[in-house]
């Protein structure tokens, strides 16, 4: 008995977590998938009816806005955060004496809650009293900056705040990447008289492809999960102009009492995440085994 116990302790230690993951991750996903195929409204029903919820979802103008916002927001956020992060990393890579302090400044927003970030930017972008009033006070009487309350522009305020929050993190990733490039190759290139910008574009940046990939994965993951920032900054408004799938799902689940819509929108979110993450994780795990 004790021998058996001794041999199986590792398995027994892992067992509770295994069960928990099976139930609370995979079981719950299965539950949501199941319910997304039913007529559930205020209460879940369990008779499968096919794809009616998905039909309703894609017929809904609100979901349409939320889903296309995800791509507008996601694209701008990822591209700009990556470019900015790369520029910052290259600037910081030039033997800057105060590098530590500057890095700390660029990265601190990452420690903040999205709700705090949203609150701060909501105040800065406040059309009546924020940036707009300040610039007008400098004498530019006609300056307008009303993106926060302009349905066509509000989504870009979320892009701005999200970039402010996350670009420092991209910088940290890229800086680590720049430092891991073989210094001998760079020295050799400099001895050959190749200009610095060519060293970057032809040698350093191409060798950082894996880092671009992981930055892309993290940022797209952040973009799809964006919920707090929208709630704090615009509340999804004006109207539902800045809804994202995450806020749509929450509204359906907890304020509209439409469980079927909540479940189907959550499933779509998961499919988007998995379409990006699964190939990445698969190749990561595969390359580990080789």
């Amino acid at each position: 008995m004790t021998k058996w116990l001794e041999e199986n302790t590792p398995k027994l230690v892992l067992a509770p977590s295994f069960v928990i993951v099976l139930i609370f991750v995979y079981g719950f996903i299965a539950w949501t998938a199941w319910v997304s195929l039913t007529r559930s409204r205020l209460l879940p029903k369990y008779e499968i009816e096919g794809f009616i919820q998905y039909d309703r979802l894609f017929a809904s103008p609100r979901w349409d806005t939320a889903f296309s916002n995800l791509f507008v927001f996601g694209f701008l956020f990822i591209v700009i955060a990556m470019i900015l992060g790369l520029i910052l990393a290259i600037l910081l890579d030039q033997n800057i004496r105060t590098e530590g302090a500057i890095r700390t400044i660029y990265l601190y927003p990452m420690a903040l809650s999205m709700i705090v970030t949203g609150t701060a930017w909501k105040w800065i972008l406040n059309p009546g009293l924020g940036l707009e009033a300040t610039v007008r006070g400098w004498g530019f009487e006609n300056f307008t900056f009303d993106w926060l309350v302009n349905p066509d522009m509000a989504i870009y305020t979320i892009v701005i705040a999200a970039i402010w929050q996350s670009s420092g993190f991209v910088m940290a990733l890229f800086l680590a990447g720049l430092r891991s490039v073989d210094q001998e190759i760079i020295k050799a290139a400099q001895v050959d008289g190749i200009p610095t910008w060519r060293v970057y574009t032809a040698i350093i940046i191409p060798s950082m492809a894996p880092i671009f990939l992981s930055a892309f994965i993290v940022l797209s993951h952040l973009a799809i999960k964006s919920f707090d920032l929208v709630i704090a900054l615009t509340g999804g408004g004006p109207g539902y102009a800045t809804d994202l799938p995450a806020t749509y799902m929450y509204a359906m689940a907890f304020s509209r009492g439409d469980i079927g819509q909540a479940a189907s929108s959550a499933m779509i979110m998961m499919m988007v995440v998995f379409a990006i993450v699964v190939p990445y994780l698969y190749s990561e795990l595969r390359s580990k085994d080789d």
């Binding site: 799809i224 995450a246 929450y250 469980i259 479940a263 959550a266 979110m269 998961m270 995440v273």
Partner: peptide
């Protein structure tokens, strides 16, 4: 996973 999928 996006946590939305386990909220309900």
């Amino acid at each position: 996973i996006p946590f939305q999928v386990v909220l309900l």
